[in-house]
Simulated assay, not measured.
Amino acid sequence: MFISGLSLTDFRSHKKTQLQADAGLVILTGENGVGKTNILEAISLLSPGRGFRGSQLSDLIRREGEGGFAISAKLHPLAVSGVVDPVTIGIGLTPKASSRQVRVNGVATSANSLSEWLAILWLTPAMDRLFLEGASVRRRFLDRLTLTIFPSHARHYTRYEAAMRQRNKLLAEEKGYDPLWLDGLEQMMAEQAANIIFFRQQLVQQLSEQINQQEDSPFAKADLFLDDGIEITEPLGGASADQQPDIMPYLQNIWQKSRSRDAAIGRTLQGPHRADLKVAHHAKSMPADQTSTGEQKALLLGLILAQVNLITEKNGQPPVLLLDEVAAHLDPSRREILFEILRSKGGQVWMSGTESSLFDKAGSSACRFHLDKEQILTDF
Rank of each mutant, 00 (worst) to 15 (best):
S4H: 05
L6V: 12
T9S: 12
A21F: 06
A23N: 05
L25W: 00
I27D: 02
T29C: 08
G33H: 04
T37Q: 02
I43S: 00
I43R: 00
S44E: 02
P48K: 11
R50I: 01
G51R: 10
R53E: 03
R53P: 06
G54E: 02
Q56I: 01
D59G: 01
R63N: 02
G67F: 05
A73R: 01
K74I: 13
K74Q: 15
A79P: 00
A79H: 09
V80D: 07
S81V: 12
G82C: 08
V83D: 13
D85C: 01
T88L: 08
I89H: 06
I91V: 15
L93I: 08
T94Y: 04
P95G: 08
K96M: 10
V102L: 07
V104Q: 09
T109A: 05
S110N: 07
S110H: 11
S110E: 13
L114W: 07
S115D: 07
I120A: 00
I120G: 00
L123P: 00
D128P: 00
L132F: 06
E133D: 15
A135E: 13
S136G: 01
V137S: 02
R139S: 09
R139C: 05
F141S: 07
F141M: 09
L145A: 12
T146V: 14
T146D: 04
I149K: 02
I149Q: 14
P151S: 06
H153Y: 14
A154W: 12
R155A: 13
R159F: 03
A162P: 00
Q166W: 02
Q166V: 10
A172N: 06
K175M: 08
L180I: 11
E186R: 05
E186T: 09
Q187C: 03
M188R: 14
E191N: 11
I197P: 02
Q201K: 11
I211V: 15
Q214F: 02
P218T: 10
D223P: 00
D227Y: 11
D227I: 08
D227L: 09
D228E: 14
E231R: 13
L236W: 01
N253S: 15
I254N: 06
I254A: 04
S258D: 15
A264M: 11
G266P: 10
L269F: 02
L277A: 03
H281N: 01
K284N: 06
S285N: 14
S292K: 09
E295H: 07
A298M: 12
L299M: 09
L300A: 06
G302V: 11
A306G: 12
Q307C: 03
V308S: 06
T312W: 01
E313Y: 01
K314T: 12
N315F: 00
P318E: 02
D324E: 01
E325T: 08
A327V: 10
L338W: 06
Q348Y: 00
Q348K: 01
S352L: 03
S356Y: 02
L358K: 04
F359P: 01
F359I: 02
C367F: 11
R368G: 10
F369W: 15
K373D: 11
Q375K: 15
I376Q: 15
